[in-house]
Amino acid sequence: MSGTFHHHRIGPLPPFLAAPSSEAVTRVRMPTGDHMWLITDYAVGRAALADTRLSRAAATHPDAPKWGSVDLSPNSIMSLDGADHARLRRVAAAAFTSARATAQAAVIEEAADALLDQLQAAGPGADLVSGYASPLPMAALSALLGVPAADRPVFDAAVTALFDMTPQGIRRRGRHILTLIQYMSSLIERKRDAPEQDLLSALVRVEQSGEMSRTELVNLGLALLMAGYETTAHQLSLAILELLTGDALAGQSVEETVEELLRTTPSTPISFPRVAVEDLVLGGTTVRRGEAVIVSLLHCNHDAEVFGASGAKSDARRPAHLTFGHGAHRCMGAPLVLLQMKIALTRLWQRFPELRLAPEDGAVVWREGLATRGVSRLVVEW
């Protein structure tokens, strides 16, 4: 069963997540008024994420239960099942070469050092969200996709606006998505005319070979952008906050520390909904065809039977956390996220070994959100 976690370090959660039942599978009401089955047990959740009877494609149908006003495009790689999903995933995975990941390390190190230089020059009392955790993944993503330096301000503004979850920001979301689609389309045309060594150029070559359509290429570019920026920026902020306020993770390697931070404080608290394409039983509960299921990655990652009540020390024998998902839709960018976090955290503490939270009120401001957790402000001293 789900273990306890420190709510003062977890931040605000939607009501259906804040007080789950002791059952492995519970019927909960979404902000839309629709009902879904919520899984909080690790074993049941892990199995559900890999169960082909639970469909991501069916969850994008207009009549399917919805968790919020914004849903992914039915053509997105995150919304597909079966052969189409496998084909696009194979194409995208081939573009994520180890050489590309190695090249990313140098980009991330250079960007991290430049941002830390700026923070040091500005002096203590810096906000690590706006000064480090948000711009770092943006720089890495721009380099990965091959966004030219001259386009960065427009690109950054559109991406940042897209993830503005204030009521005002949500109202304008459609316009920002359109801006990004237009930008991605124009960038693809430029890569077609003058290919480079970046990921988008590699994907354009795949499209030219006939393995995917133009629409799929634009959607894949946007999916990589949306998955790669917001979740990574929040994940980095949450990891820094946990290191500043949580229990010391002594005696662990950097890799073990990063994995443990991903487990205890995932920026993605819940999986995307999946809809049952036939009746099935999950954790002793019958889920009917057409009903939706979501997995609380947060609660599964804190399952005391799997990870121990204290969870302070990772154990090589225990199962993997579910922060990156599991099964066919497991996050393809996981190695890049791990790389960014390892470099970002190492560089930050090397530069500021005495790093601590600022004593002021409002040093930590949690953001309200459904699909992602994070802080909008994290003020530190050194």
Rank of each mutant, 00 (worst) to 15 (best):
A83Y: 08
E256M: 05
G68E: 03
L355V: 02
L88N: 05
M212W: 04
E256L: 05
S213H: 11
V25T: 11
P359M: 07
G45L: 10
S237V: 09
Y229T: 00
R317D: 14
R274C: 05
Q340K: 05
E255F: 06
E189W: 14
S186M: 06
Q208P: 07
Q340I: 02
T245C: 14
A239D: 10
A112G: 07
Y183F: 14
V44R: 15
R274M: 07
S296A: 06
A239L: 02
S376M: 07
R175I: 06
P20K: 00
P359W: 01
H234I: 03
P153T: 06
F155N: 04
A250R: 14
A304C: 06
T97M: 00
L348W: 08
V44T: 15
R356T: 13
V258F: 11
V204M: 15
V287Q: 06
P74I: 02
A312W: 13
Q104M: 02
E368I: 04
H329I: 10
M165H: 04
S185P: 13
R192H: 14
A316E: 02
R288V: 06
L238G: 07
A149N: 14
A312V: 15
E216V: 07
H8Y: 09
A50F: 10
I343Q: 12
C331P: 09
G290L: 08
M1A: 14
C331H: 06
T179D: 13
A101E: 11
R9G: 02
R173K: 09
F163E: 00
T286D: 09
A239N: 01
G169C: 04
V28N: 13
E354T: 12
R46H: 01
R9T: 06
L357D: 09
D361G: 11
L357S: 05
L355A: 08
D71W: 10
P273W: 02
H302K: 10
G374E: 00
G228H: 06
F16W: 12
M184F: 04
A95Y: 08
M165C: 07
V70W: 02
H302Q: 12
H326N: 10
R89S: 13
V375G: 01
R27T: 07
D51Q: 01
E255K: 13
S134I: 00
R330G: 00
S73M: 03
A59V: 03
H7G: 04
R317F: 10
K66F: 09
S79D: 11
I343A: 07
D279C: 02
T102G: 02
L348A: 08
L80I: 14
T265I: 05
A47S: 05
